[in-house]
Structure formats: structure tokens, C-alpha cells
Design a protein around this nucleic acid. Structure first.
Length: 630
RNA sequence: GGUUGCGUAGUUCAAUGGAUAGAAUAGGAGUUUCCUAAACUCUAGAUCUAGGUUCGAUUCCUAGCGCGACCA
């Protein structure tokens, strides 16, 4: 049991014994004691003052007295300051903790018998991965590791959006401008090659649509435009003549007209007919689609391997996009959905504060949510889990809310365990990434850059002369990825964040490499002095100076559980950085070699070793590896 | 327009309703006979505005301002 849980339970017993009232454990506020006060843990008394009709200080004193009398082995002293009860934990407890936990699995929790599925990454097959995907991947991987460490059986999954308009655009451009280009004959990574043709398509589309847009903006509707588009265009053109509109509104209208111009183009018509052919199973189209997707997958695999990402089950949208229709039919029968007169099918979510939501069009085709319902069911059939976590950007919060509600209405057993781990967009210091303006940061390029900077900074320091080329390559990879992952994971996922390229490759301060450095430093200590001999440490009074570090080490299990509960790796990053910092600070001033006596030396070695284990395990939860030397 | 998220040092991030709001970085001043100076020690600097709830509010509530997202 963690010491914090122990104290809370003890305090609960104390309340029962002293005041015949038993507060819930969660209502007892327990903090680490601030360094300027004496003690290890602090109970805040104010919450109980009113109910018990005593002053905070009187309560604290009575509680403290009871605790040292009834738990003398653990709680050995207390002081009361303005309603805060500061408790001192016995040195012997901490020493025993060091003895019991000095093993490589430090901090990991036993199995809780529950299963969780984590969906992350979920790329489109028309473009290479970019910075936003990296945040997604790192989050998904990390949360999976955190869940494992807190006792879950975890399965990682990925949903590949491999069909639809976007990939048809790349296919069409390749057919038109490709001249038989392949990844091999152009020496280009497959996902990048397909992405290049997507860009070529967009450029060609722009060239075709611009003159049309200019006419529309001038109030003219071209004669060869499709009728439905012409009607729509007229509506917006009329609005455009309204001079009282704000600049924002005018821009909105301009965007609408742009969309119309794009849709009116021959290129978009071809894309749509290509998608239709795909849906009808046209052999030539399918073959092209398979070939280009296979290029993309090969490219993705390379990137995934490099950034450390894998999946136990991969779902392809082309396999699953028809799922869900059956469930809609069943839902109509059971009254969850209703059919409107013109034939479309809806669900009424007004009782939950949302509106009515379409689940099947009047022509019987599905919408996104239909597929997602089907896939949710499929996932459960493949892996009956209690928790189903979706790592998806925060622009889909509404969509995910709807999905969960529908699953609940359909009485799916896992519905309550659906969590949307939403994360904010990654911005650049100059603003948001825009593909149209070419400011998107490519994942492969970024990884290259991180490793190069790691190399040049390391060489500057000149400490790696005895490394083999293979070791160096490995080290630069470890450091570069460590910096990148730590930088993206240290921020609360739900917040939008700024990615500053220069800051991300900084190796000082609150960074991955700082923690990696501390680990390497500890390994160096252990190489020099050997493993600690715990049996040699018998005097518990040696501990006080190093206690803050031991207290932090003991906290690791609590931090894991909290991070799992919040589905937020940033707590781990904060924790491991703080641990590394405390270690560095202490052992820069108090060297192990100069310890006053052998017992003290062994104690410091033991703390160093456990710190090493803990750093390694914590970093593993972030998907970051640590070098033995650097 | 409706729904929703976010506003904290110059900058990037913290703070289950708790003690004097923490870090990092940039700025200023120091520390290399000693296990890794990619380190350490000082120093200066912040809660968008107005109300409310509370013994106590960065946190909860209401309104406003600013930025974003989603929906039509």
C-alpha cells in the first residue's frame, strides 16, 4: 500500500475513534508537506471544522496525538500550523521502502483484471504523417503504457482511413501526371510520393477553379456549370451584394463560392466518378488503389518503427465503412432511431442537451457516425473490453459525444467505458499549420532534424570519442526522439500547444535529454562504485538529508494511477523531471565518493540505484528510452 | 447565431478549493582538483475584467472581454 493511502485510512480511523464520525477517504485532503515546514505529509483540517465544532488547531492536535499513539511504527511526530497537520514518517519506514522496492520493476502495479482498447494514430492514406500525428501517436502509446503499468491488459489499435475522396485525388493525379512513377524509380518514400500527387491534384484543381471563382465573385455564373451548383451559387452571390455584411461574413461567403467553383471543376467530377467506380469494385481502380496504398503503408511502417509505435489490430475503413447499417435497422426496431417521411434515419438526442442527429441518409448510405457505431461494436467483438479509448483531436468532441450516447442507447456493454482522449492542435510560433501555405511540419523531416541536432550538440561536448558508429547512431536516435516525445507529452493533452522548433531541440531544463542525462549519470555512479549493499545500512538515522528524494520515489505508484485515471502523461513527465532535478541537485553537492562513512555511501548508492530504476520505468511510460551513458 | 474549450512571469508550461501561485527558458550574479558542468547555487519577474459562493478561489457560479473549435 502507498503511504498516502495508509495515512488517509489511519486518519479515517482516528476520526471514527475520536468523534464517532467516519469521513470518506477522498474527503481527506493529504498533501506533501512544503519544504519550509517540518514533516513529510500534511492533512488539511478546515473541511471538518464546521461539522465537528472545534477549531482547526484543536482538531489537528487531537488527530496528531491519536496517530502517533496508534501508528507509532509509521507516524512518529507532528506539528500544527494554522490548521495544517504536518506528520513525520519514521525513517525506518523509508529505509524499509528502499529495501523492498530496489528492483527493476519499481512502481508497476499488479493486474486489475480489466481490459482497455486504445485507438490512436488513425492516418489518412493520401499524405505522410505530420507534427499533429506525432502528438497523437505519442499520447496513444504513452497512455497505453500507463494503463499497462496501472494493471490493465491493453490492446492498441489503429483505424486507417484508406478510402474516399482524398485518396482518389492522389490516384487521379498519379494517373494523369505520374508517368509510371514508383517509390523505387523515384527513390521517394511511398507516403511522400502519394502525398506529392495529392498536392499536384490540389494545384491543378486550383488552376481550374480560380477563373470560375473570379467570375462568381464578379456576380457571373458560368453557363457550363451544373444546375444545382448554379442555384447554390446564386444564393451566395445575392448575399454578397449586401454591403452591410461584416468582413468575416464576406469571407465565409467567399469560401462557399470557392467550394462551388472547386466542385464545378472537371477534376472533381472525375474524382467523384472514380470513387463511384471504386465502390462498384472496378478492377482497374481497385488495383491502382491497392498499389498506391501499399506504397503508403510501407512508408508509414518506416515512420512508425522510427518513432516507436505499433498496433495489435489494424482496422481499414474500406473493410468497415459498411458496418453499422445493420445496427441502425435493429435500432429502428427497438425505437432508438426513427425514420423520417422522406426516408432518412435519425436519433433524437435533445434529452441529452444535443440535437437530432442523422445516422442514415435518405438514399440509405451511411454517414461517419454510422460507420463508427459499427466499428465500435466490431472492436468489442474482437476484444471484449471495459474501456475503449479514442485518441482523436478536440475538433471531434461533439462527434464523440454523439457516438457514446448512441452506443449507450443501443445498450452496448462497453458504452460507459468509451473515453475520448481529445488533444489540442499543435501550433507553430507563427500560428497554425496550414497545408495550403506549406507550413505543415513533416514527421520524417522533423525526426531527421532532431537526430541531427542531437548529433551536433553531442559532438560539441566531445564526450563520446570511444563510441562505435553504431552506438553513436543509436544514441542520437535515443536523444532526438527523447527530446521530441518529452516536449510533446509534457503539456496537458487537452490544451492547444505551441511547437517551437528551437525550444524542442533544447537539451537543457524541462526536457527529455535532461532526464536522460541524469539516468546516464546514475549509471556512471553505479559502474564506479558497484551495486549497493542494502544489508550494510542498519542505522535509520542516516536518512534525513536524502529523504525528499525517497519520498518522491515512493510517490511513483500514485503518480501512475493518477495519470491513468486522467489519461494524461504530462503528470509522468513532470514527476520524472522533478525526480531527476532533485537527484542532480543533491548529488552535485553531496558526492557519493566523499560520503562520511561506508553506511552512508551504501545508502546513497541504494537511493541512486532506485532513482535509476524509477527514471527508466517512468520514461518507458512516455515511450522514451534512456542511454546507459552519453 | 447555438454548443463547447482556453485566457497565469517577456516566452513556453504547472498548481485533487488550501500555507508565501510552482518550473523551465530568456535576463543579472556565481560554482569545475571531487561519481558525467547536457550539471549546480543565488537573483528578478505573473493569475483577462467585474460581481458571487467559501474560513480560504488560479480552480466553483454569473456576466463581460479576447482567442480557438464544433454545429447549422
Amino acid at each position: 500500500m502507498q503511504i498516502t493511502d495508509f495515512i488517509k485510512l489511519a486518519a479515517q480511523k482516528a476520526f471514527t475513534a475520536l468523534y464517532q464520525t467516519t469521513p470518506a477517504v477522498n474527503d481527506i485532503t493529504l498533501n506533501e508537506t512544503k519544504p519550509e515546514f517540518e514533516g513529510d505529509y500534511t492533512i488539511v483540517m478546515f473541511a471538518f471544522v464546521k461539522q465537528l465544532g472545534k477549531s482547526p488547531d484543536a482538531l489537528a492536535t487531537e488527530l496528531g496525538d491519536w496517530l502517533i499513539k496508534n501508528e507509532p511504527a509509521i507516524i512518529v511526530g507532528f506539528n500544527v500550523i494554522k490548521g495544517f497537520l504536518n506528520l513525520s514518517i519514521s525513517n525506518n519506514y523509508w529505509l524499509q521502502f528502499l529495501r523492498d522496492n530496489n528492483h527493476p520493476d519499481a512502481g508497476k502495479q499488479p493486474s486489475n483484471g480489466k481490459k482497455a482498447m486504445i485507438e490512436y494514430s488513425s492516418p489518412n492514406t493520401n499524405k505522410p504523417l505530420h507534427l499533429g500525428h506525432l502528438r497523437n501517436n505519442f499520447l496513444g502509446w504513452s497512455v497505453a503504457e500507463i494503463y499497462k503499468a496501472s494493471g490493465y491488459e491493453v490492446i492498441k489499435t489503429c483505424v486507417v482511413n484508406d478510402r474516399g475522396v482524398h485518396i482518389c485525388k492522389s490516384m487521379l493525379a498519379w494517373k494523369r501526371f505520374g508517368n509510371g512513377a514508383t517509390p523505387e524509380n523515384t527513390n521517394t518514400k511511398g507516403d511522400h510520393l502519394v502525398g506529392d500527387y495529392y498536392v499536384k491534384f490540389e494545384n491543378a484543381l486550383k488552376a481550374e477553379a480560380t477563373p470560375v471563382l473570379e467570375q462568381l465573385m464578379a456576380g457571373k455564373i458560368p453557363a457550363d456549370i451544373e444546375e444545382t451548383l448554379a442555384i447554390k451559387a446564386k444564393v451566395f452571390i445575392d448575399k454578397l451584394n449586401d454591403t452591410t455584411l461584416s468582413a468575416d461574413k464576406q469571407n465565409e461567403i467567399k469560401e462557399e463560392l470557392k467550394e462551388i467553383a472547386r466542385n464545378a471543376s472537371s477534376l472533381m467530377q472525375e474524382v467523384r466518378s472514380m470513387l463511384l467506380k471504386w465502390e462498384q469494385g472496378d478492377a482497374e481502380t481497385i488495383a491502382l488503389w491497392q498499389m498506391m496504398n501499399s506504397w503508403v503503408y510501407k512508408g508509414f511502417d518506416e515512420t512508425y518503427q522510427r518513432i516507436g509505435s505499433d498496433f495489435q489490430i489494424i482496422y481499414y475503413e474500406s473493410d468497415t465503412y459498411l458496418l453499422g447499417k445493420q445496427l441502425v435497422e435493429e435500432g429502428i426496431a427497438s425505437g432508438v432511431f426513427f425514420r423520417k417521411e422522406e426516408g432518412s434515419v435519425w436519433i433524437d438526442l435533445t434529452a441529452d442537451g444535443l440535437d437530432e442527429k442523422l445516422v442514415l441518409r435518405k438514399d440509405g448510405t451511411s454517414v461517419y457516425i454510422t460507420q463508427d457505431i459499427g466499428l465500435a461494436r466490431r472492436k468489442y467483438e474482437d476484444f471484449p473490453m471495459q474501456e475503449s479509448i479514442y485518441v482523436i483531436g478536440d475538433e471531434q468532441i461533439y462527434h464523440m459525444k454523439v457516438l457514446q450516447l448512441i452506443c449507450q442507447r443501443l445498450a452496448m456493454p462497453f458504452a460507459k467505458g468509451i473515453h475520448h482522449l481529445s488533444y489540442g492542435m499543435v501550433d507553430l510560433p507563427t500560428g497554425r499549420m496550414k497545408s495550403r501555405e506549406g507550413t505543415v511540419v513533416d514527421a520524417d523531416d522533423l525526426c531527421n532534424e532532431m537526430e541531427q541536432v542531437a548529433a551536433s550538440k553531442t559532438e560539441e561536448l566531445g564526450k563520446v570519442k570511444d563510441f562505435t558508429p553504431e552506438e553513436l547512431k543509436q544514441l542520437y536516435h535515443t536523444l532526438g526522439m527523447g527530446a521530441l516525445k518529452f516536449y510533446l507529452l509534457r503539456v496537458d493533452p487537452k490544451k492547444r500547444m505551441v511547437f517551437n522548433p528551437e525550444e524542442s531541440i533544447d537539451f537543457h531544463g524541462f526536457t527529455g535529454p535532461f532526464v536522460q542525462y541524469t539516468y546516464a549519470r546514475i549509471q556512471s555512479v553505479l559502474r564506479k562504485f558497484g551495486a549497493p549493499d542494502l544489508q550494510k545500512i542498519v542505522d535509520e538515522n542516516l536518512l534525513p538529508l536524502e529523504k525528499s528524494l525517497v519520498v518522491s520515489l515512493e510517490q511513483f505508484g500514485t503518480v501512475i494511477n493518477q495519470s491513468a485515471f486522467d489519461m494524461n502523461p504530462s503528470g509522468i513527465a513532470l514527476y520524472v523531471y522533478d525526480l531527476a532535478k532533485t537527484f542532480n541537485s543533491f548529488y552535485t553537492e553531496h558526492s557519493i565518493g566523499n560520503a562520511e562513512n561506508e553506511e552512508k555511501k551504501q545508502l546513497r548508492l541504494a537511493i541512486s540505484q532506485l532513482t535509476g530504476y524509477t527514471i527508466k520505468n517512468a520514461m518507458q511510460l512516455l515511450g522514451i528510452s534512456v542511454p546507459g551513458r552519453m
